[in-house]
Every structure is written in C-alpha cells, then in structure tokens.
C-alpha cells in the first residue's frame, strides 16, 4: 500500500473522469456543442506528455552530471511514454478539429508546433538507434534531449502565444480564462489532468523496470 497508493489514485481519477466527464453538465457553446467534453480527454494527454518529457529531461541532466546509465534508461523510456501521449493528443485533436473547425488539419502555429515537437522527439529515437556504444549513446542523446525540451517549450508554449491561433488559449491569452472553463468543468478537468499524468508515470515506470531487467540479463550473460 505504501508504494502503490498513487496507482490506485491514478485509476480512480481516470475512471471518475470518464463518468463525470460524460454526465456532469457543460456550458452550451456555439460550434463546440457537446464536443466541449473533449477537453477532459484531449488536453490531459498534452499535460501528461509535458510532465513525462520533463521527467525525461530531468534524468538526462542527471545522467550528464553523474554518468549513471540508470538515468539514461529512465530518460529514454520516459521519452517513449511521452511520445505515446503526444501521439494520442495529436490524433484526438485532429478529430476534434474536423468536427469543429471543419478540417483534419489546419496550418496553425499551435498545430504545426505540436507536429514539429513530435518530429523532434522522433529524431531523439533515431539518434539513440544509430549509436551503438552505450556511454556515447547516453551522453549524446542526453544533450539532444535537453535541446528537444527547449524546442518543445518554444513550439508549444511560446510561438502559439505570439501568433494568432484557432486553438484556445493562444494569441496572447493565458491558457485558461473564464470563457474556456466554468467551475463544474474544473471539477472534472483538474482530476483528469492529475489522473492522466499519474497513469503516464505508471506506464513509464513499468517500461523502465523492463529495460533495467533487460540490461541486467545482458550484463550477466
């Protein structure tokens, strides 16, 4: 119980999100209609991705200062899990855009920024795959990972705020204002964000443990 209480919390929060997200009332907004409920599912993907990629960044910095290969394992597996959430975020966003803006994809700073971010992280995996020597791979990809996170902040947080964007929370405005969220929606949205972050961390820890076991077996052979 000591160690896994947060996994139960993650499951409870995500299940609560599904039930409350469909059944609680939402404000009636033109264009959005009931799709406003997507906020409970699409946005937490990105919050989860940013949190998990931050964990990845943190361990990359840790690797550079301590040269412990375990940190490199965490950094790479966190980047994997973060990409899963980012991919789900971009696909759900595309579906949402089709039925509100009328197109699967529009050339918008936020959307293109998200796509570029995913490509930057794909390059991280290509970089890892192309280096055979363990220490070298860990060091070079750690440096690249720091660069990748900075680019993520630029493409997802800064550029969309400097330009006009169809996507809510951009064009100079802060992320959430009173038009985006009412108090009932907050009651579902915040638990949703917390739940998906925790669920993402859970998936990440499983991947990390498997990779550490793989390495252990390789070392013993």
């Amino acid at each position: 119980m000591k160690n896994y209480w947060w996994k139960i919390l993650a499951a409870a929060l995500v299940l609560y999100t599904i039930v409350a997200g469909f059944l609680l009332s939402v404000p009636a907004q033109p264009i959005l209609h009931e799709t406003i409920r997507n906020l409970y599912f699409h946005v937490p993907m990105w919050f989860g991705m940013m949190t998990i990629l931050f964990i990845s960044l943190w361990h990359s910095i840790k690797y550079l200062s301590k040269s412990d290969i375990q940190s490199d394992i965490v950094a790479s597996q966190a980047a994997h899990t973060g990409m899963l959430l980012g991919f789900l975020g971009i696909v759900t966003g595309s579906v949402w855009a089709k039925y509100t803006w009328g197109a699967w994809w529009v050339s918008d700073t936020k959307l293109n920024g998200a796509a570029i971010t995913l490509l930057i992280y794909l390059a991280y995996f290509i970089l890892r795959g192309s280096l055979d020597e363990e220490q070298k791979r860990a060091r070079i990809s750690a440096v690249y990972n720091i660069f990748a996170y900075v680019m993520l902040i630029v493409f997802l947080m800064i550029l969309p705020r400097l330009n006009d964007s169809l996507h809510p929370g951009n064009g100079g405005n802060p992320g959430f204002n009173k038009y985006d969220l009412d108090s009932t929606m907050r009651m579902v949205f915040y638990p949703a964000v917390a739940g998906w972050i925790l669920l993402g961390v859970w998936m990440m820890t499983i991947k990390v443990r498997i990779e550490k076991l793989k390495r252990k077996i390789l070392m013993n052979e």
Partner: peptide, 27 residues
Amino acid sequence: KIYVVVIVLAVIMAGILGYLVMLDRKV
C-alpha cells in the same frame, strides 16, 4: 442511454487498468 456509453467506456478503461496491474505484477 448515455449511461450505456459511459458504462462501455468505463469497462474499457477498467480493462486497460487491469492489464496495467497485471503487467506491473509480472515485472
């Protein structure tokens, strides 16, 4: 009938969570 959709989604999510628990134990 929206409750049917909620139940279906909850079952799917419970299934995925159960799968995660199983993976966790296996590891």
